[in-house]
Structures are given as C-alpha cells and as structure tokens.
Simulated scan of single mutants.
Amino acid sequence: MVDSRATMDRAEEILDRVRARTSPRQIKAHRRRVVGFFRRLKYAFFAVLGVMLAGGLIGTFITPLGIGGFFLMLVAMAIVFFGILGWPQAPEPTPEQIAKSDLPLLPSQTERWLEGQRPALPAPAQRLADEIGIKLEAIGPQFAQLNPREPAAHEFRKLMAEELPELVENYKRVPEAMRRDARNGGASPDKQLVEGLRVVDEELLRMSEQIASGDLNKLATQGRYLELKYRGEDGETR
C-alpha cells in the first residue's frame, strides 16, 4: 500500500512537470526562441549576400579576385553566416538591471527574468509564474503611460524589482531536499513560495484594476501588504 501511494505521488509529480512544460508561457518562450533563430538566419543570409556583392564589386572594378581571393571570400561568407547564426541571445536581466530599467520596460524585463527562474520552481509555483507573466504582458501598456513619479509606479517597481526577486531567491537558497518539509510548525518552503507568488499575482491584478479606474492613491496605502505579510514590521523575513 505504501509502495502504491509512493507510485501515485511520483506519477502525479511527473504529470505536474509535463503540464508545466506545456504551459502557455513555455509555448510562447519556445516560439520566441524559434522566431529569434529565424531572425538571425535572415540577417545571416543578407550578410552573406553583402559579402558576395562586395567581392563581386572588388573583382569587377578594383582587382580580379583569383583563386585565393575566391576562397577568401568563401571563408568570409562562412564566418559571417555562422557568426550571426550563433550569436547568443540577450542575457537574462538581473534584479539589479530590472530595478534600473525604465518603467515601460519593467514588465517585459521582469517577465524575462521570471521565465529564467521557472526551472528552479515547483510545478504549482511554475503555473503561478506563468500567470504573473501573462499579467505583466497585459499591463505593460498601462505602465508605459504612467508617470514614473506616481506612487503606483514606485510600488510596482518595488514589487517587481525587490519583493518578487527576494521571494524567489530566498526559496532557491533552501536546499532542495528541505523544500517540501514544514519547519517549526509552519508551511514548507514550497508552500511559502506558492503563497508568496499568489500574493504577487493578486497585487498585479489590483494594481491593474486601480490604474484602469484612475484610482492611483489607493496604491500608496496598500502597497506594503506583501512586505508586512512576509517580513513583518521589524523587517525580518519570516
């Protein structure tokens, strides 16, 4: 019976991982990588055409290329093609870079950073990270029009660049073998992470609704909810 229960738990864990890998956010991330590859392929193709055109012009109007020049042109074409095709994508933004980014770029930067943290999260947290990413994509245009000096902009930057990264990084520092175990009668690190991400998700929804309704003043009075819930008044992490 114990073995059967353990097998069922293992099967459920595998199903969670499969669902997590086929989430809308993961599909979109894969599509973005494919689009990026074909964009680089297009640039590499035009760069090769440019080398061919330059070689033709040199051979026609300046000096004949000869066999050596022809092979040199082939080498240049290969270097340009594979150099552009293998050019690495932009590195994942860090929380420090997110904190310094302009407000219109903050949602997309945070979304990319959170996508990079996804493999280290348990399946329920991955689904919440996907939902947060979807909300960030949706509210991007709202914050692009917001004055950076508004209290709403300050609270959003604090939530995205400080509180969310700290929540995830604190979880990642817990040894993997201890993440499912409750400590001192409280919730396990896995459950604390899920609850924290759920609060972030709810905060984003609240911010979006209040910005849409023009009620920006409430954000200044409610913005410390996450900090108080997970740190307490003394500023120490619970």
Rank of each mutant, 00 (worst) to 15 (best):
V75D: 10
G36Y: 03
Q222A: 15
Q222D: 12
S101V: 01
R40G: 06
I67V: 13
G186S: 10
E236N: 08
N184C: 02
T22M: 13
Q109L: 06
G185T: 13
S213G: 02
A76I: 03
I84L: 13
L57K: 02
G116C: 08
K229Y: 09
T221M: 11
G223N: 06
E233L: 15
P141Q: 10
L85A: 15
A78I: 15
Q192K: 15
G116F: 06
E203G: 03
A90R: 14
E162A: 03
L105C: 00
G223P: 09
G69C: 02
E13L: 15
T7N: 08
S188H: 08
R238H: 12
V35S: 10
E202M: 14
P189A: 08
A120W: 12
Q222N: 15
L41V: 11
V51Q: 09
L159N: 10
A90K: 13
S108T: 00
Q89A: 15
M52N: 09
V174N: 03
G66V: 02
A212R: 13
E163W: 12
L204S: 04
V194T: 10
D130H: 12
G133T: 06
G36N: 08
T22P: 02
K229L: 13
V34E: 11
R25M: 09
P104K: 01
F143S: 01
G55T: 04
E202K: 11
I79W: 11
Q142F: 02
L57V: 15
L15M: 14
A182C: 02
D190A: 06
T60D: 02
R39H: 11
E162W: 03
A44R: 14
V51R: 10
I84P: 04
E150K: 04
E13T: 07
V18S: 06
Q109G: 08
A29T: 12
P151W: 09
K100S: 03
R157W: 01
E169P: 04
N184K: 11
F46N: 00
P119E: 09
R183Q: 15
D190W: 00
A129F: 10
R180P: 03
L85I: 12
V51I: 09
E236G: 00
I79F: 15
L216D: 04
I62R: 03
N217R: 14
L164Y: 05
E92K: 13
T94P: 02
A177T: 07
A212V: 09
G50D: 05
R224A: 07
A90P: 06
A138Q: 14
Q222L: 14
L226G: 06
A76P: 10
D102S: 12
R157V: 00
A76Y: 02
N170E: 06
S23L: 00
N170G: 04
E233I: 14
G56H: 03
R198Y: 11
R32S: 12
A78V: 10
L53Q: 05
L15R: 14
F45W: 05
L106M: 01
Q142M: 11
L72F: 04
D102W: 01
E111D: 15
E163G: 04
G36A: 14
R112F: 00
K158R: 14
V174P: 04
G55R: 08
E227L: 07
Q142K: 11
I98A: 00
P151R: 07
S101D: 00
I211M: 08
Y43F: 14
N170C: 05
E12Q: 12
K28N: 09
L219K: 07
G83Q: 06
G140R: 01
D130C: 10
R198Q: 13
L204G: 03
R17H: 09
A29K: 06
L128Y: 03
